[in-house]
Design a protein around this nucleic acid. Structure first.
Lengths: 346, 346
DNA sequence: CTGTTAGCGCGTTCAC
DNA sequence: GTGAACGCGCTAACAG
């Protein structure tokens, strides 16, 4: 009898959504066969596949990924955890990740830590509650709990932005100390002697602090005096650059170059200098990082260390997808390096 | 000591995750009681609540939101669907949405349509498969299927960026035609007579096309001749601005002002002009939209129509959250308006 | 290649 | 205030 069926439908407010069982009924097969026709088409006969496809079309069936996730554990969701969205740096990476994942039928769940590792830890707990297929997170420094949980978890994890020997699982990024060292060396080679470092949010953004470390190491190696470190306790912005220029011009002796912790700050310096008629690089040289699109439109062009951010995102997504498809990616730890883009600002 | 107990399930590989049942056992109550202690603490005795909390703490229990979602329908996920992440415009809005949602314990699922309404439609299908608690999407134009599905769906939906009379559910944005009209009027008031419109991606970005419509309407009303429309079939970028300046300077008769479809393009124009020594606004006036942070750091400052993008994101999230908490928000359709920020560029 | 059976972890009945 | 069933929609395991 079908009185039972009718009853079981309206138990929870039915929402009227078409389910896999409806499709099965329409196609005259068992639910599991529909599932297979949809997920592993190779395992059903062509004829059944066709009937199922027709039924799906006719009923407008859309899979309930939540149910699938519960049953199979794995929801085709990839949480991406970054410090902030207000920083241009992360946007291109995220954009690339998202494009690649979406093309493969995965959805990106975006969460931000606001540079707080404790928040990161609790976010990791939360997102694991979604039975995601994998996780992408920023940097290599995390609370021990995060590391052990993700290690035990058994699904792919990619750490981005920074590289190191011992990631949780896989890793794509650049060496922050090397970045700082390279820019300082460049400035020294160009003959600048009093090089100030302008840092933003160094206490929170430890990757910016790594660049400072590289900077100082390069100065020491060259036997150069430290031109000073200006630290601003807020996220990078053009405004920070504006203030930094002001502060640097007021220093005695005055630095002849400034090494900015990123392109946004460096751009702020350049824009302010142009407004104030300070000649770059004669009076002051300026170097930045990351190769933001803006850098090459400034006058003079900003000398910067370009990092392939889109590439980083794409590769992170691809490492993840490869693992999800059962393969073992080669080179699961990837240092993407950087390129010095010499502009007129140094 | 107590850790090996978890092995009891063998059917599906247990993954060792702590479940509500584990907590119940530890606390000596039924699973449902744990559920209540966690979700509706008012309905259990203080003593039980305490025991449950202790057990949760001891076992490190993290709720499986997927299971909760299946049972109750509603996963505390809010999909946010935007055209692209490569456009700064959307970033601040998304950032604000994300912050507000995360603070309320919801996660943002980010998806991009690449300006394609068919893609949007299929994305909506997909994300509804996650049993989300609500949906935020961009603009008011959608495929009929999207509109009917979301209308029937019965959960909160907010459309952002654009405003109109008849949203699917709730709506926060600005009037695109009014924006275009206001900037053109401003330029006319300043005495400019040959005003060119520079558009980017107009075929895809119909909201930019609305600004053009407002522009043309203003010119007509003033009886001014059309200074031409330059259209670039690619997303907005500084580069588009650079090319636009070139193209405008080659026009005869030459426009005395350009009205850019957004600040990124306008900034590109200003930066290129500064490089080439073209005097702004004497030789050419430039106006843009949105009030990007960069606008006020340029020389001269860019005249722009500032739109409160963060505010838009926050309000969208808040409308959603209000409805999720059972209230009926007042003013579910909100026009946020805009402000003319007069810079030196006009 | 297809069907049967038995849950995934939780919240909603409706009893007590 | 608390508990026992039951099912949300789907898929892994094993048949046949």
């Amino acid at each position: 009898m079908d009185s039972q069926e009718i009853r079981s439908r309206k138990r929870h407010r039915g929402k009227g959504r078409v389910t896999l069982a409806d499709v099965a009924r329409q196609a005259g097969v068992a639910p599991i066969t529909v599932s297979r026709a949809l997920n592993t088409p190779g395992r059903v006969s062509a004829e059944v596949k066709e009937r199922v496809d027709a039924a799906v079309e006719a009923l407008g069936y859309v899979p309930n990924l939540i149910a699938g996730g519960l049953a199979a554990a794995g929801t085709r969701v990839i949480p991406v955890i970054v410090p902030s969205l207000a920083i241009l740096t992360f946007i291109e990476v995220i954009d690339a990740i998202q494009k690649r994942l979406e093309a493969a039928g995965y959805q990106m769940l975006l969460a931000t830590t606001d540079w707080d590792l404790d928040r990161e830890a609790s976010l990791v707990d939360t997102v694991l509650g979604y039975s995601p297929s994998g996780v992408i997170l920023t940097g290599l420094r995390h609370r021990p709990r995060v590391i052990s949980r993700l290690r035990d978890w058994g699904r792919p994890v990619v750490e981005i932005m920074e590289v190191g020997d011992d990631p949780i699982d896989m890793n794509v990024g650049v060496d922050g100390v090397a970045l700082g060292h390279a820019m300082a060396s460049h400035l020294l080679e160009q003959g600048y002697r009093r090089i100030a470092f302008v840092g933003s949010h160094l206490g929170h953004d430890y990757r910016a602090a790594q660049r400072l470390e590289g900077h100082q190491r390069a100065l020491e190696e060259a036997g150069a005096a430290c031109g000073g470190v200006l630290e601003y306790h807020e996220p990078a912005s053009y405004e920070v650059g504006v203030r930094a220029l002001e502060d640097v011009m007021a220093m005695t002796p005055r630095p002849d170059a400034i090494h900015c912790s990123n392109d946004i700050v460096a751009s702020g310096v350049l824009l302010a200098a142009s407004r104030q008629g300070i000649r770059i690089p004669e009076e002051l040289a300026v170097g930045g990082y990351l190769g933001l699109p803006l850098a090459e439109h400034l006058t003079p062009k900003l000398t910067t260390l370009a990092v392939a951010r889109s590439e980083m995102g794409t590769q992170a997504a691809e490492l993840l997808l490869e693992r999800l498809s059962g393969k073992t990616p080669e080179r699961p730890i990837r240092d993407l390096g950087f390129t010095l883009v010499k502009g007129g600002s140094t």
